[in-house]
Design a protein around this nucleic acid. Structure first.
Length: 444
DNA sequence: GCGCCGGTTGAAGGT
DNA sequence: TACCTTCAACCGGCG
């Protein structure tokens, strides 16, 4: 429509100070954030405005509800359970519809070049090319991500997912299959929602329209709308509770005596043997080399495709934390933040706390998912493992979850010997999880 | 302030 | 295949 997106690079405070000094700006409009660092950034810029007689106005858009509205309807208290959150939303009107797109003739054009010249801004003003952002030496391989960025791709995915209206209305999270792809059992819209490529309000109202016409439909928290409410719930908690992504000084989190709490290690101190072992275990987990095919296949999919189904996240989170390795969830959170396309401050932290049973939302520490039986339950054929760990593709279903139990002659016949072509187990789950349950209980 | 109950998504063994 | 019970008893939010 002849409008321009102008990208200015630098510290927001410095860039806005420079822009405003041109005297050409009267209004600043921006979308409110909920995370600590962006909130601090926005506040700094907002405080700059009076100096230049600029009026600032902000709007809530990245969540269905304004977190302040939810808090106001609960005596200023942040709900600790998603069911409570849902009951609060029942008292509120439905979230706003998306604002319609601007039409031709409503676009404000002005001579940005003139302003930039006046303030002596000479850097590029276009969207950076990928080459500028990525170190080519680190990126020799072809990308394997199955999701492509951008609004066009996100909307395409959303409309494709919304086509099966019965499936949308009767969506039941616990019944979704985490190992199928093409099509996937869930929307896979999380990265687009996270970056705002697809508006959560747009998605919500599209689902709502479908449900209104159906007699039979599921309800939150298990329904599709319920999935968006979980997102809201975590956003609200992350907004209300300081240090939400930290183990310590976080009102949502219980501190147990995990390994690797103070990490990376202080080189001047003597490091206990268990901590050094835990560091090795963390590395093996992150690289998909634990010796448990179910865990390794999931971590391989994560590394390769940047997205895994929530149940698979549950498996690997449990394994790293309460189930087997007993490693501080902050370490896992860091790995997820690097590898997940949908990595999100609130959701990532909330999920790690919840699934490691140290959150106030959920704390059944004795519920441990086994890297063998839980895998068999979710992927009875073992095909998911064969897809992501091709070295094990000749293993029959009977042995693929526990390759170390296969006789050596068969391992040779199938072309994959445990300890040579595929790693030995770094830990014995059966023995460990029993001990860990006791330690965990004591720590509580 | 007391006591109840709920928790998206376990495992094993059963009908 | 789908669903039930038991396991052991969490513990803070909520009524």
């Amino acid at each position: 429509m002849g409008s321009k997106l102008i990208v200015l690079r630098g510290s927001p405070l410095e860039v806005f100070d420079l822009l405003f000094s041109s005297g050409k700006f009267t209004n600043l409009f921006y979308e409110k954030d909920t995370e600590p660092l962006p909130l601090k950034r926005d506040k700094e810029v907002e405080e700059l405005c009076p100096k230049y007689q600029v009026t600032s106005k902000s709007f809530f858009g990245r969540t269905l509800y304004n977190p302040e509205d939810i808090l106001a309807h609960n005596n200023g208290v942040c709900p600790g359970h998603v069911t409570k959150f849902i009951s609060i939303t029942n008292k509120l009107p439905k979230c706003q519809e998306c604002v319609r797109e601007p039409q031709k003739g409503e676009i404000i054009n002005f001579n940005i070049e003139e302003i930039l010249e006046k303030i002596k801004y000479t850097k590029p003003i276009s969207v950076p090319k990928v080459d500028e952002l990525v170190d080519k030496n680190l990126n020799e391989q072809e990308p394997t991500h199955i999701l492509k960025g951008g609004e066009t791709e996100g909307l395409k995915l959303m409309f494709e997912f919304l086509k099966d209206e019965d499936k949308i209305a009767t969506f039941d999270k616990p019944k979704t299959n985490p190992v199928i792809s093409n099509p996937c059992s869930t929307s896979m819209l999380s990265p687009y929602l996270k970056y705002g490529a697809v508006s959560v309000r747009n998605f919500y109202h599209k689902i709502d329209e479908i449900i209104k016409q159906k007699k039979k439909y599921t309800r939150p928290p298990n329904s599709l709308i319920g999935q968006l409410f979980w997102r809201e719930f975590y956003y609200l908690n992350a907004y209300s509770r300081p240090n939400f992504n930290c183990l310590k000084n976080n009102s949502a989190c219980k501190v147990v005596d995990w390994y690797l709490i103070d990490y990376p290690f202080d080189n001047n101190q003597e490091i206990p043997e268990e901590e050094l072992q835990a560091e090795k275990n963390l590395k093996a987990w992150a690289e998909g080399k634990t010796g448990y095919p179910w865990i390794d296949a999931i971590m391989t999919q994560l590394r390769k495709e940047g997205w895994i189904h929530h149940y698979l996240r549950q498996s690997v989170v449990c394994f790293l934390s309460k189930g087997d390795l007993y490693i501080n969830w902050e370490r896992g959170q860091e790995v997820f933040e690097e590898l997940l396309l949908d990595a999100d401050y609130a959701l990532n932290a909330g999920n790690w706390m919840m699934l490691s049973s140290t959150s106030i939302f959920f704390f059944s520490y004795f519920r441990i998912s086994s890297p063998i039986t839980y895998g068999k339950k979710l992927d009875p054929s073992g095909d998911y493992i064969r897809k992501h760990l091709p070295q094990l593709r000749k293993y029959p279903t009977e042995f693929i979850f526990e390759p170390w139990t296969a006789p050596i002659e068969l391992q040779e016949e199938w072309g994959c010997i445990v300890g040579k072509d595929y790693p030995e187990r770094i830990i014995n789950h059966k023995v460990t999880s029993l001990n860990k349950k006791l330690i965990f209980k004591k720590s509580y």
